[in-house]
Design a protein around this nucleic acid. Structure first.
Lengths: 230, 230
DNA sequence: ACCTGAACACCGTTCAAGT
DNA sequence: ACCTGAACACCGTTCAAGT
């Protein structure tokens, strides 16, 4: 955030790293050319020497995070040898991808706003498809599996009820609303919360454990694929 | 887009409807106070008489689409009586939700950027949980199912490889790149595309059928839940 | 070659003013 | 009550200028 003591020359990599850090710290909304430049101890216009425009900056930011995900997958493969079963391997990779997504909660939204697919993503999915084919999947089923699994980190990273959903839990709304009225309007959710946690006076949905939910869904999909495997 | 012939007075509903239409037509990026006002044939500052700020406008836009999804679910229930099996019912509701998401492809990203959960969403999920409980699900399993299913339309609406992914198919990238080099770097994807479609000279990933992929994943999850049901 | 400062066209928003 | 116009603080970006 503060100006650097030593002023190494700017570079595309340094700019992108600072951009990711800024987005992590204060959200994509705070990621402006002027603010980013200030974080780098430089004038806004200097950035244009390393990136042609803001769109290119955002593309670069997405590509940086995709590379991070790809590196985690490859790194995990190396340390685990080749003796993993396909489910274990994919499970590990998607859990790692989710961890990275959680560190960059703005990523799904930004990814959705890009007009070109980050090239690193192709390599990532190629590895997944390779694992599936190696386990005897047909091309068609591997294709379906790629979509089913691929959308998972995206959807869960912006889960509505997740506690990481930038503050604003159900609690806030309920504080003002009539609790009895809510129980009447949402009988099933109210009953579910009452059963799952036993403090009915705090019916926040912050009790949702995103990690548990994610693993549940992941295993549901992996199990279903195992059953369909040729 | 053009000024109205008859100038009915502005209202929150009219502003929100115009905002959704503008976002559908030109993306959220085009949704500025000034542009929205111009579409309504009015001065930008007039909007502030019906909405306190732009954040409130965006909240209202999200709430409008959520209401649309909720209405589709309830409407479908009415015309289908109560004799549906739980899977058929949820399947129909999620396919309907997906159709609406496809009409508003900016929705997941916008939803992710909101700080408060749209209240209409609680009612929607309450209905889903109700269906599950009615089918004998435990509260715990209904909770898991709610997360697994709930994240599905979000993830798929911004599927990377989907053709609706705002132009920019793989084709564009490949046009510049060496085709042989790609086959080497992405052997499994290349083989998969070659098998699934037979025109290898056009290795676009636009052949992905989002509807088919969505239904496949949906059925994978529904099938898994059926097996876990108490 | 890399960085700067002033300038331009845009944006959300305030405020005093119109009807 | 509802709408307007000028004004302010911001933003991305161009361009001529500095070293």
């Amino acid at each position: 955030m503060a100006a650097k003591a030593v002023r190494q020359p700017l570079s595309r990599e340094r700019v992108l790293a600072a951009a990711v850090a800024l987005a992590d710290a204060e959200g994509v909304k705070a990621l402006t050319m002027r603010r980013l430049a200030a974080d780098l101890g430089v004038e806004a216009m200097s950035l244009y020497h390393h990136l042609p425009a803001k769109e290119a900056l955002l593309d670069g930011v997405v590509e940086t995070v995709v590379a991070e995900i790809g590196a985690a997958a490859v790194g995990g493969n190396a340390t685990n040898g080749g003796d993993e079963d396909w489910r274990t391997r994919l499970r590990r990779q998607f859990l790692a991808a989710r961890q990275i997504m959680l560190r960059h909660p703005w990523m799904p939204g930004l990814l959705g706003s890009r007009r070109t697919i980050p090239v690193g993503l192709y390599a990532y999915y190629d590895g997944i498809v390779g694992t599936l084919l190696g386990a005897g999947f047909s091309h068609r089923l591997a294709h379906r599996a790629m979509h089913a699994l691929g959308s998972l980190p995206l959807g869960f990273a912006q889960e509505i009820f997740s506690p990481s959903s930038a503050g604003g839990s159900m609690e806030d709304d309920v504080a003002e609303a009539d609790l009895a009225a809510m129980a009447e309007a949402l009988p099933h959710l109210t009953a579910m919360v009452a059963t799952e946690i036993h403090d009915v006076t705090d019916p926040t949905l912050g009790w949702c454990d995103g990690q548990t939910e994610f693993e549940f869904t992941l295993d549901l999909i992996l199990g279903g694929l195992e059953r369909l495997r040729a």
